[in-house]
Amino acid sequence: MNNAPLLQDAPIDALLVLSFGGPEGVDDVVPFLENVTRGRGIPAERLREVGKHYFHFDGISPINELNRSIIDRLKREFVRRGIELPIYWGNRNWHPMLEQTVAEMTADGVRRALVFGTSAYGGYSACRQYHEDIARGRAAVGDDAPDLEKLPQLYANEMFVAANVAAVEAAYAKLQGADFASGTRLVFTAHSIPETADAEAGPEGHLYSEQLRFVAAQVADRVGAAQWDLVWQSRSGPPHIPWLEPDICDHLETLASDGIRSVIVAPIGFVSDHLEVVWDLDTEAAAKAIELGLGFVRAGTAGSDDRFITMIADLIERRLGISDNVQELCPFLQGATGVGVNGTVCAPGCCGAQRSD
C-alpha cells in the first residue's frame, strides 16, 4: 500500500484521463473480459459467449477511439486557454492500463495530477470504483507515485445538461412529424444497476437514480417535453437480483400498446457512444421499435459536443485557481472542487463499496 505523504505544496502538473477501456480487435475480447471480471474465475468459454456483442463489431469497442478524440480536443482547448498540463490516459480494463500510465507519469517526474473519470454520475461503478482504480494504480508504482485527485462528478454541470439538450433537439429535428404534445415520447436511458447498489449510491436525495432523474427533468423542461420517461439498459448479472427497471425494450412495448407513435431515446447516462450505446440502443432497441412500428431516433451523447470539452477545462481552471466559470445546477455540487485524493472516497456516505455489475 502507498503510504507516502500528500504533496500538498506541489503544483498540479498533469491531467490523467481515466476510463473503462475496451478491446480493439477480435483477439482482445476474451483477455479484456478477463480483466473486467478479474477475480471471479469465469471460464473463457463463458466469456466468449458474453463477448458476442463485441464480436458483432469485429471485436472493436468504440470507447478507446472516442477517448482519443476527447483527449485531442482537450489538448487543443488547453492550447487555446494557455493551460500547460500534459494529458495522460489510462484504463481500468484495457490498454493503456492505468498501472502502466501511472508508472509513465512517475518516470516523467509528475508529482501531482488531476484525474478526469469518463463518467458523469455518482455511485460505485460511476465514481467510487475510479477511486479504487487510482489507489491500485499508485500502489503498483509505490511511494514515488504522483498524488492523484479526481475531479468532481459532473452530471449537474450546466454544460453537461446543455450538451444533452442540444442532442435531443437534433434528434427531434430528424424525426418527421415529431410532436412532444401528442404521439412522440422522450425516453431517457442509463445503465441499470442493482437496487441495493442504487440505495447506497449517494447521500439521501442524491442516489444514482435520482441524479439521472434530475438531469432528465432539466433536459425535458428545456426541450418542452411535458411527458418523459427514465428507463434502463445494459443489465447484467443473476436474474434473481432486482435491478433498476424497466428495460428500454420492455418500455418500448408498453409505449406502443399505449398508442405512442414515435420515440426519441436519449442516453443521458453515458458520455460517449461506446458499445453499450451502439448495441443496446442502436441495435436492439432500434430493432424492437421497427418490430412495434414505432418511429425511433436515438439522440447523441454529450461527449461529442464542444460544451463537454469546455466543461472539463472549466473544472480544471477552477481547481487551478485560474477562474471559476463552473455553473452547477444542483446545490449538492455547488462549489465542489477535487473529490478524493489518491483513491480516497468522495465524502462520508457518498456511495457503498458494493459491486454493481
Score class of each variant (00 low, 15 high):
173 A>F: 06
194 P>A: 13
118 T>C: 13
140 A>R: 12
181 A>E: 14
180 F>I: 07
86 P>S: 06
96 P>E: 02
121 Y>T: 12
150 K>S: 15
192 S>T: 11
153 Q>G: 08
193 I>K: 10
136 R>G: 01
111 R>P: 02
131 H>Y: 03
109 G>L: 03
142 G>P: 01
171 A>I: 03
190 A>S: 15
187 V>D: 00
148 L>Y: 02
78 F>C: 09
93 N>S: 08
172 Y>R: 14
130 Y>M: 02
156 A>Q: 07
189 T>Y: 05
117 G>V: 05
133 D>V: 01
76 R>P: 00
114 L>P: 05
192 S>W: 04
126 A>Y: 10
110 V>F: 07
89 W>Q: 07
190 A>P: 02
173 A>W: 05
89 W>M: 04
161 V>P: 01
169 E>S: 14
184 T>E: 08
117 G>C: 08
172 Y>S: 15
165 V>S: 07
97 M>F: 15
170 A>M: 08
95 H>F: 15
127 C>R: 15
127 C>S: 09
91 N>T: 04
100 Q>H: 13
77 E>A: 14
105 M>T: 08
158 E>Y: 11
115 V>Y: 11
139 A>T: 10
113 A>E: 04
160 F>M: 08
113 A>I: 12
135 A>N: 06
154 L>C: 13
133 D>R: 03
164 N>A: 09
82 G>L: 07
135 A>H: 11
121 Y>V: 01
115 V>M: 11
76 R>N: 15
122 G>F: 02
162 A>I: 13
162 A>H: 12
146 P>Y: 07
123 G>V: 03
130 Y>S: 01
192 S>E: 03
103 A>M: 14
160 F>A: 11
117 G>F: 15
126 A>Q: 10
137 G>M: 07
117 G>M: 12
109 G>Y: 14
154 L>D: 02
163 A>I: 12
141 V>M: 05
84 E>W: 00
105 M>I: 13
165 V>P: 06
175 L>D: 10
101 T>D: 03
152 P>Q: 04
117 G>K: 15
174 K>G: 05
152 P>M: 02
169 E>V: 09
78 F>G: 03
178 A>Y: 00
141 V>L: 00
168 V>C: 06
146 P>K: 06
179 D>R: 07
168 V>T: 01
163 A>G: 08
170 A>V: 05
195 E>M: 01
167 A>Y: 00
171 A>G: 13
80 R>C: 10
152 P>C: 00
145 A>C: 01
